[in-house]
Design a protein around this nucleic acid. Structure first.
Length: 566
RNA sequence: UGGGGUAUAGUGUAACGGUAGCACGACUGACUCUGGAUCAGUUAGUCGGGGUUCGAAUCCCUGUACCCCAGCCA
């Protein structure tokens, strides 16, 4: 913990409401000064930016308070969970920069202990085997406004319950035929307390325990026990579990075991995207995207492939804060965070996405000059590199207009601009094809402006990026827009769902792009700034001789804004 | 209409009875070999109505709105 400097007016570090609780607990010694959190994903899908919020909260709090944070898989439902998801989650949490040392746990490792505790509750007369069908259980539960009715099986002797429960475990009964239920209160206003199911019979193969179990614990029963076993102090979860806290508390108190404090916070919502695993699964299954790691997905793997850095995601999670009320964060804030980080860390490079050929009529045929370019103006240590310059070049089509409107100060007939790190050039002639399309520009360069400055002190209003034709590498560049056309994808017409709001133009593939030769050896996940265009990331489809880049995010573009407002 | 939560600029958040602050966005301007970055500035807020108090975003009362809960999902 750093010493507070009272001479500055920055004030004390502001703590969110969860950190306030943790800080208070440390002060009062509630847990003996211990802070132990956990991130408990269910391995039934890929992690997304919303999980990152939880990950940063749990691992962040542990780190800040000198505590520990476990990675624990909440794998109590064999029907939905897969090893593939376990692997991806481990990879993603690590990639985000967090470490759990040797504390990688699985709820399924505690199945035997859970079973023993269930037996204990049965013996206490606090749990019973119920023979009601799923439909009957629903009927007996009552409704939000009416109390439920007690199961006719509620008052079996503990001997009978013990025997039946053992036989459930032994696999004597078919799926769905019986459950183990807690005996609480069928008229409780909180429906979760109306004799909730603790175990269901499921003859399913579990991704870790195989076929050793045919009864599986329900979340409400299992989760608190997992936290208790691991000695968790602060069990941080999302808002929808607030209604379950009384049950969480009830189980731990009845058992008289270590009782962590559950604290709930609001999950993250982001504009122009969906966050529920169910919807993300649909996007993948119904091929709206190319997979879990499609760069348009809000998954960690998608963001990684898109070019987001772990630092930018962690910083995003810090600036959005944490609260108890639902809110939707503007996607622009995520973009701000990634630009902020990439601006400082990304090497600059020149790439032309939509090439327009430029011939310098007064430049010597066959001559090549290697001009020195700065790799990162924000980081002098990044050094410089040499970029080839010659008679035939490519510039961006957007950087030339035959009849330029007001405020357009790039290249136009008769106008002079600077080619970055090279020369001033002047447009002398526009060459068109039979249809009148501009296919080539004839320009002259001023040899006196070598390096990019005029000895006579004359100024140009624009600096253009460029690539020498003969040295250029071909590349494919994938441009992305929001996956949905609406800020809230769930806002739909009657009878439609979020898929109706999918943006048909969310992916645009550009081929025949020209990039500078230094990019020849780039490897997947390398991050770049293409000067004046944006931040780009070498895609995993990229290989020697076939370069593929993803646009992470554009640079802030004043000219685009002017155009849009016209 | 049962229970549990929550309301602060366009958006995300601070304030813990004492000047409503920060960030993003938007809009100006300066600077610039990236129309980037940077810098300076502008914009705009306490859900409504009562009360308590010298003083209320904060405490009390009362409305209103939104979210969650009736899986043998988590």
């Amino acid at each position: 913990m750093t010493e507070q400097n009272n001479t500055t007016n920055t004030g004390p570090e502001r703590l969110d409401f969860i950190r306030q609780i943790v800080a208070e607990d440390c002060k009062t010694g509630k847990w003996g000064g211990r802070v132990h959190t956990r991130f408990p994903p269910e391995p039934n899908g890929y992690l997304h930016i919303g999980h990152a919020k939880s990950i940063c909260l749990n691992f962040g709090i542990a780190a800040e308070f000198g505590g520990k944070c476990n990675l624990r898989f909440d794998d109590t439902n064999p029907c939905k969970e897969e090893q593939e998801y376990v692997d991806s989650i481990i990879y993603d949490v690590h990639w985000l920069g967090w470490d759990w040392q040797d504390r990688l746990y699985f709820g399924s490792d505690y199945f035997e202990q859970m079973y023993q505790w269930a037996v204990e509750l049965i013996k206490k007369g606090k749990a019973f085997v119920c023979d009601l069908t799923p439909e009957q259980i629903r009927e007996y539960r009552g409704t939000l406004t009416e109390p439920g009715r007690e199961s006719p099986w509620r008052n079996r002797s503990s001997e009978e319950n013990l025997d039946l429960f053992a036989r459930m475990r032994a696999g004597e009964f078919p799926d769905g035929s019986r459950t183990l239920r807690a005996k609480i209160d069928m008229s409780h206003p909180n429906i979760n307390m109306r004799d909730p199911v603790m175990y269901r019979i499921l003859h399913a193969t579990h991704h870790r325990t195989g076929d050793t179990w045919c009864i599986y614990p329900m979340y409400d029963w299992a989760h608190g026990l997992e936290d208790s076993i691991e000695g968790i102090t602060h069990s941080i979860c999302t808002l929808e579990f607030e209604n379950h806290r009384p049950l969480y508390d009830w189980f731990l108190d009845e058992l008289g075991i270590h009782h962590p404090q559950q604290i709930e916070f609001a999950r993250l919502n982001l504009t122009y995207t969906v966050m529920s695993k169910r919807k993300l699964l649909r996007l993948v299954r119904e091929k709206f995207v190319r997979g879990w790691d499609d760069p348009r997905m809000p998954t960690i793997s998608g963001l990684r492939r898109r070019g987001f850095s772990p630092e930018s995601i962690r910083n995003f999670c810090k600036v959005i804060g944490v609260n108890k009320f639902n809110s939707t964060v503007d996607y622009a804030l995520l973009e701000h965070c990634v630009r902020d980080d990439l601006n400082r860390t990304s090497p600059r490079v020149m790439a032309v996405l939509r090439p327009l050929k430029v011939v310098l009529t007064n430049y010597p045929e066959g001559q090549v000059e290697w001009t020195e370019a700065v790799n990162n103006p924000e980081d002098p240590a990044a050094g410089t590199r040499k970029v080839p310059f010659s008679k035939v070049l490519y510039i961006e089509q957007d950087d030339f207009m035959e009849t330029p409107p007001k405020k357009f100060f790039r290249l136009a007939p008769g106008r002079e601009v600077r080619l970055r790190y090279a020369y001033f050039i002047r447009c002398e002639q526009v060459i068109k094809d039979a249809e009148g399309n501009i296919v080539e520009l004839h320009c002259t360069y001023d040899p006196a402006t070598r390096g990019g400055n005029a000895p006579d002190g004359r100024k140009v209003k624009a600096t253009l990026h460029w690539v020498a034709a003969e040295h250029a590498l071909d590349a494919e560049v994938r441009l992305y827009e929001h996956l949905f056309t609406k800020e809230d994808p769930d806002q739909t017409e009657e009878g439609q769902d979020f898929s109706a709001n999918i943006n048909p133009d969310s992916l645009q593939v550009l081929t025949g792009c020209k990039v500078e030769p230094s990019l020849k050896t780039t490897r997947p996940l390398d991050r770049w700034q293409f000067e004046r265009l944006g931040y780009f990331c070498t895609d995993s489809d990229s290989r020697d001789g076939r370069l593929v880049f993803n646009r992470t995010v554009t640079l802030k573009d004043t000219w685009a804004k002017i155009q849009k407002n016209q």
